[in-house]
Amino acid sequence: MTKIIYLLDAATGVFMGESLHPLDPVETERAGEPVYALLNPLLAVEDAPPNTPAGMRAVRSNGAWTLEAVPEIPEAEVPDPELPPVPEPSDPPQPTFEERVEALRTEVQAYMDAMARSLGYDDIKTAVTYAEEPAVAKFQLEGKAFRAWRSLVWEACYALLAQVQAGEAEEPSKEALIGLLPPLEGLPDPAPPAPPAPPAPPQPDEPIEQPE
């Protein structure tokens, strides 16, 4: 035979649930029949609690069951999550002197290439290759002019940048640097225009046929 016991909260006497009544193994073996263990009345009882309506709970007090309202559990206040501070916008890093110098060198190289392309070459390196090619005098003269000009340009560019680094001159903008470079000289004079073609000689008048 199975018996049900009713568990209690030892501190408050509140009904906690049901369980099977444990047997006393020693007494059961001695008696030859089930003998249930003694109960601690603070932890379990054999009489069932009354029906408990919603919002109520059964409590064991002074050997009897009573009903009481289930106390409301205050909701724990959940603090608002702390958002990380928004970093203040910072100015973008300024380029170093070496980076600015490299940008100026790139601008100078692009300027010389553009000058060579204006005369039909791919770039200034291509134009310079014609300096030692005598097959076409015009191309050779242009190649020599570009080769000399390239050396003068880089000499002036590096001299100015050295003054800037030493604090002897202000750092120029890309546009201002181009205006400080030596001009391209030594190009052959353009071929004179061809003279106009002589007018066609006048054609003799055709004879007028006389009627017969």
Rank of each mutant, 00 (worst) to 15 (best):
E88G: 01
V14M: 08
W149M: 02
A169V: 01
Q165P: 00
P22T: 07
G17K: 06
P192Y: 06
Q165N: 14
L181R: 01
T28E: 04
M56Q: 15
S118N: 10
V128W: 01
L43D: 11
G55R: 05
P93I: 09
S90F: 04
T52V: 15
A110T: 09
L141N: 02
P74R: 04
G143I: 05
S19W: 09
P25G: 13
L119H: 10
I73L: 12
T66L: 15
A131P: 03
A176T: 13
A37W: 04
E209L: 14
E68T: 15
A54S: 10
P74W: 01
A11N: 13
S118E: 12
R105D: 05
I73C: 02
A114G: 14
Q163P: 00
E99D: 13
G186L: 00
N51Q: 11
C157N: 00
P85M: 01
T106A: 12
E77F: 11
T126G: 14
P71E: 12
V35E: 12
M112I: 00
M16Y: 03
K174R: 12
G13H: 06
G167M: 05
A135T: 13
V35S: 10
E46L: 12
A114N: 13
L38S: 13
P74V: 04
A11Q: 14
D123R: 00
F146T: 03
Y36A: 05
Y121C: 08
A76Y: 00
L187S: 03
P202Q: 13
I208R: 14
K144M: 15
P193R: 11
A131E: 15
A48H: 03
P172M: 05
T66P: 01
V164A: 12
V108Q: 01
S90C: 03
V108D: 01
K174G: 14
E99S: 09
D24E: 14
L160R: 04
E175C: 04
P34A: 09
L7K: 14
P199L: 14
P190L: 11
H21V: 01
K3P: 01
P89L: 14
T96I: 06
A69D: 09
E132T: 15
P79H: 09
L23D: 08
E82G: 00
H21G: 04
P34N: 10
T12P: 08
D113C: 04
R57F: 06
N51P: 08
M16A: 15
S90V: 15
Y121E: 10
I178Q: 03
P41Y: 04
T2D: 15
A148K: 10
P34I: 05
A10G: 05
D205N: 07
T129C: 07
A148I: 05
D113M: 03
P95H: 07
